[in-house]
Amino acid sequence: MKGTNLGEFEELVLLITVARPEEAYSVGIAKIIDEVTNRKVVHSVVHACLNRLLKKGFLSSEMKAGSNKRGGRRKRVYTITPLGMKTLEMVKSQRDQLWAMITPA
């Protein structure tokens, strides 16, 4: 397995799966990124990222029924694993530590 570090984009994707579990599939996540960061992301990039997180063991997935718009096709819905959760918390605490070191101007 590749390293277990989290890229900035990966962190974002991971956070969204936790924050918006009902939208935690590739298209949903891409839309939320759009909303929150105002960044236009290509679906294939999100999809690749999700694949990577699956491989790292931060996410697990399951096929679930999708809306009619998908032509009757199911969608792959992602949920965070305990490992993924732990990694997220670690990243946050590292950030917090660094923020705490900054003396307010």
Partner: peptide, 14 residues
């Protein structure tokens, strides 16, 4: 396939 195709359909119909 199912997931990707479904996603592209979703964008299309949006």
């Amino acid at each position: 396939l199912e997931d990707v195709q479904g996603a592209l359909y979703e964008y299309f119909y949006d």
